[in-house]
């Protein structure tokens, strides 16, 4: 196995975890990982050899995710015809429960906040690496991280009204 393959494959579990946390869909997450890896392979010799491989890969993935998000904003979200749920009478038991899954709470944060919680809190990137991925100074990372954690908690506390809350 080549050095490139070895070094890239070592990062795949982390990339899949990050992608899944962003998309909350296993297939789409692996699609994103695949796009990211393909791009990394094609640009392997263009990367800065003294640079940080993890930060580089997460930057590629984040950029792909953001541009895909812009695309789906233009086109509208993609729904697979087979998995789409037909409108029916809504289930009642969810009332009052704002968040069933912690990833759902994560999803209500902005892109940058979400990425920061994941990159720093889960992927254990240094603040400098996270700053490089997001493309902001380290000081900005610190203050955004602080706000992101507060907002994350308040969503979990159900203090802020959920954006998609049903009105009765």
């Amino acid at each position: 196995m080549s050095t490139m393959a070895m070094r890239l494959e070592a990062e795949i579990p982390a990339l899949r975890r990050y992608a899944f946390a962003l998309l909350r869909d296993h297939n789409r997450a692996d699609d994103l990982v695949q796009d990211c890896l393909e791009r990394a392979i094609s640009r392997w010799y263009l990367r800065r050899t003294d640079g940080d491989l993890r930060a580089w890969l997460f930057t590629i993935m984040r950029n792909l995710h953001i541009s895909a998000g812009r695309q789906s904003q233009r086109r509208g979200p993609h729904h697979d015809l087979d998995t789409v749920t037909l409108p029916g009478s809504p289930a009642d038991q969810d009332h009052g429960i704002a968040v069933r899954d912690i990833l759902e709470a994560l999803d209500r944060l902005s892109d940058d906040q979400k990425s920061l919680l994941l990159l720093v809190g889960v992927e254990d990137l240094s603040y400098e690496q996270a700053a490089a991925v997001i493309g902001v100074p380290v000081g900005t990372v610190m203050s955004r991280l602080s706000r992101a954690r507060q907002k994350f908690r308040s969503i979990l506390d159900n203090k802020t009204p959920a954006t998609l809350r049903r009105v009765k």
């Binding site: 890239l8 494959e9 579990p13 899949r16 946390a21 695949q34 890896l37 912690i102 809190g121 889960v122």
Partner: peptide
Amino acid sequence: LRVRLSEKFAEPIPARLRI
């Protein structure tokens, strides 16, 4: 958050993502 995602991290790499 780490616990919620740990399972995903532990998954074996799918064949299609092999370099």
